[in-house]
Design a protein around this nucleic acid. Structure first.
Length: 463
RNA sequence: UCCUCGAUAGCUCAACGGUAGAGCACCCGGCUGUUAACCGGGUGGUUGUUGGUUCGAAUCCAACUCGGGGAGCCA
């Protein structure tokens, strides 16, 4: 007899009810009396457990009742309606085979553990309810990203993880090198001789696939990247990791408005997909992690996102009755407290801020008519802050070169990027979505370390 | 990197200058429909590390390590 997945049983119970079936999984908990007992079995396919009823007609009943938590077993029995209130059906075991024993010092107990503790046992935490839910959502969300773009004929580009161009100034980078640290080659000026290194030049882990994505954008029109990204910043916050995943679409013949429409549709698609395909997990988050989660997500899906310009935002903040620690002045970057005020207090939903002063944004962003702001947008969401940053790209070669000069960037280092403007460059735009921040927003989990299977952060790369 | 709070049993916490405790977990026993099952008993500690103050330190002080929260940087 072949095994049935617990998810199949829950989704299609009429097919299996009153039939003899076989399931396999791990013991989450056992409750026993003298001659009968209950096992909660989780087989990994589904968030919920299947209740197994055992009694002393089983020839290994004594052994079964003493199984340590997390033992792996194979159960054959009849699926029947359950008289208990907490489950619609249960499996009356006829035969239980022990696949793999656990031991009584198994660290996960059947009570609530702190996220801090679970982080110290990252190899076991996917077996807990919360992380089982988080990582199934992460998987579904990744799939939803691909579906969203593929349905719209976007081409998925694998931009390089190792990059030779120190582009963008998007952040501190991790160096990639095979040089012998004990014996570093030097040139005649005493500087490190990277011509002796593996790539014959300095190389780093990517901080963004955007510049490479733009090359494919000019060939495939609409493209996206989805992969790991690295920042070597000494950030110690619940929202930053050294290794994280980013989604970066890039669209041709498009302006900033098209970019924002795409971002809004993508986020709504992502939320809807997870609500539709993992209702049990989403209910769990709503019940145990963040009581207002489902209401908030529903609100996001239903409502139009807010829009305002940076200049309007500054005016709003200046008129605000709320006192801020940092002064508000046109030309300054918005502080976290300002962003939170806008998205949490004023709009109470996701809000796009556009048209930032050129001095505080990257060189590739398109100059506006006023010659002092650029066509940039940040999407701010309640509880997380900035979740998306994007812009229309500067397609006018002279203006782009001028901006690079202001940023003291060498034209030669960006020769291929500049050629995109030379050979039939078009209006184009794109954005970056922090995948983990999206997962945090979807689940209500407040620490990025708890939405990454094995998080890498400052002073931490265990597992 | 800065500010701030914390570290006591496997886990979550109490004890706040005078013999280190509870709940859960775990072990033993009981229980014929449990739901973080229940009832009875038991095991379990160099109080993060190092140094200092004191007759006496989990408790006061200092440094370090690690962790939480806030800020900066950003996604």
């Amino acid at each position: 007899m072949s095994s049935v997945l617990v998810k199949q049983i829950f989704r299609d119970q009429n097919t299996y009810l009153n039939k003899t079936i076989k399931v396999s999984g791990w013991v989450r908990t056992i409750r026993v009396s003298k001659s009968f007992g209950f096992i909660e079995l989780n087989d990994g396919s589904f968030f919920k457990n299947l209740q197994i009823v055992v009694d002393d007609t089983l020839d290994n009943f004594q052994q079964i009742t003493k199984l340590p938590v997390s033992s792996a077993i194979i159960v054959e029995g009849e699926l029947v309606e359950s008289p208990g209130a907490n489950q619609p059906f249960e499996l009356k075991a006829k035969c239980i085979e022990i696949e793999g024993l656990s031991t009584s010092d198994y660290p996960l107990q059947k009570k609530r553990h702190s996220f801090e503790y679970l982080r110290t046992i990252a190899h076991l935490r996917p077996r807990s309810n919360a992380f089982s839910a988080v990582f199934r959502i992460r998987s579904l969300a990744a799939y939803a990203i691909h579906r969203f773009f593929q349905e719209r004929n976007f081409v998925y580009v694998h931009t390089p993880i190792i990059t030779g161009s120190d582009c963008e100034g998007a952040g501190e980078m991790f160096r990639v090198s095979t040089l012998d640290f004990e014996n570093i080659p030097r040139d005649s000026e005493g500087k490190i001789d990277f011509s002796k290194d593996f790539f014959g030049k300095e190389a780093n882990l990517t901080v963004s696939g955007q510049l490479e994505a733009e090359t494919f954008c000019m060939a495939f029109r609409n493209v996206y990247t989805f992969g790991p990204t690295f920042r070597a910043e000494n950030s110690n916050t619940p929202r930053h990791a050294a290794e994280f995943w980013m989604v970066e679409p890039e669209i041709a013949f498009a302006n900033l408005e098209d970019d924002m429409i795409l971002a809004e549709e993508m986020l709504k698609y992502l939320i809807t997909y997870c609500l539709d395909n993992a209702p049990e997990e989403m209910e769990f988050f709503n019940k145990f992690i963040d009581k207002g989660l489902l209401d908030r997500l529903d609100n996001v899906v239903q409502s139009e996102f807010g829009y305002l310009t940076y200049t309007e935002a500054i005016d709003l903040l200046k008129k605000s009755p709320q006192k801020f620690d940092y002064p508000v002045e046109w030309g300054c970057d918005l502080q976290t407290e300002h962003e939170r005020y806008l998205t949490e207090k004023v709009f109470k939903k996701p809000v796009f801020v556009t048209g930032y002063p050129k001095e505080i944004k990257a060189f590739y962003m398109r100059m506006n008519e006023d010659n002092r702001t650029v066509a940039a947008m940040d999407l701010l969401v309640p509880g997380i802050g900035e979740i998306i940053g994007g812009s229309q790209r500067e397609e006018r070669l002279e203006l782009l070169e001028e901006r690079m000069k202001e940023f003291q960037l060498e034209k030669e280092d960006y020769w291929w990027y500049l050629e995109l403007r030379k050979y039939g460059g078009t209006r184009h735009a794109g954005f970056g979505l922090g995948f983990e921040r999206a997962i945090m927003y979807l689940t209500g989990i407040t620490n990025i370390r708890d939405v990454i299977p094995f998080p890498r952060t400052v002073k931490s790369a265990e597992f």
